[in-house]
Simulated scan of single mutants.
Amino acid sequence: MLTAPVRLLGDTDRASVERLLDLEPYTGAQVAERIAAAGLSRRRQDARIFGYGSRGHLESLCWLGANLIPVRAGSAAVAAFADLIGSETRICSSIVGDATAVLPLWERLRPVWGRARDVRECQPLLAAETAPMVAADPAVRLVRPNEVGLLYPASVAMYTEEVGVSPVVDGDTGYRDRVADLVRGGRAYARFIDGQVAFKAELAVITRHTAQVQGVWTAPQWRGCGLATAGMAAVVADALRRVAPTVTLYVNDFNAPARRVYARCGFRRVGTFATVLF
């Protein structure tokens, strides 16, 4: 039995949803981008969006699709979402978002969903509002459409290293299509050395509030040479100039080299994410 009012949201709720997402410009960015592009109708989204609260006062959201993403969810909302979602077979490949919602939600879902492959409980959420003081690498640029074939192996290597499994299963082309979409959208950056990717990063999420960077990777043979700091400085400067008023990202707390890079580029901590991987 539900502990509080939860309902499936639709396009008639869009104004209320957008007001709530404006209150969470960083932690709600992944959901905000998708709703801005396609609204809330399940006919246009490969996901369901649930709301917690009365029709006149929407308090929290929960996106349920390939990812499970709670937004602005306090303890009562977490309990209500868990009651609803826990009655279904798991379809998502991860739970991601603000740690204060993700971790309690996982505690409630774990008895019915079983063990996760990995739980990353502390991922500092970082933001930058001004161009970095460090010098940007002038060789870092947007990847061109005819360079997808060069970027793709680096993207697979980054994903496999970060997540622990390959994004390519039985020759599936879905991940390559994702990489190509990022390139076509002017969201993929790289530095090429001798025809190979030495550094790369993408603007995986873009809203009117922020551009969220993901997929940051330096080729193993170029690590420790300063490419990541100069490359990130170039990405942040271009994103602030061309795309959004802030740049955000989240990073595993144990990734000390990456955290040093982001600190040099002027990022400050604005919250904490958590990710549960299945």
Rank of each mutant, 00 (worst) to 15 (best):
M1N: 09
R7C: 09
A15Y: 04
E18A: 14
R34K: 14
Q45I: 04
I49S: 10
S54I: 10
G56F: 02
G56K: 11
G56S: 12
S60H: 00
N67L: 02
I69D: 03
P70G: 04
R72E: 05
A77W: 07
A77R: 03
A77M: 08
L84D: 01
L84G: 10
I85P: 08
G86A: 08
S87Q: 11
I91D: 12
I95R: 01
V96A: 10
A99I: 12
L105I: 13
R108W: 02
L109M: 08
G114V: 04
A116S: 14
Q123S: 08
Q123G: 09
A136W: 06
A136K: 01
R141I: 01
L142F: 14
L142P: 14
N146L: 13
S155Q: 13
V156H: 06
T160H: 00
G174P: 13
R176G: 12
G186C: 03
R191D: 11
A198V: 05
T210K: 00
V213Y: 06
G215F: 02
V216T: 15
C225H: 11
L227E: 02
M232D: 03
V243P: 03
V247P: 07
T248C: 12
V251C: 08
N252K: 11
D253V: 15
R264I: 00
R268F: 14
R269D: 15
T275E: 13
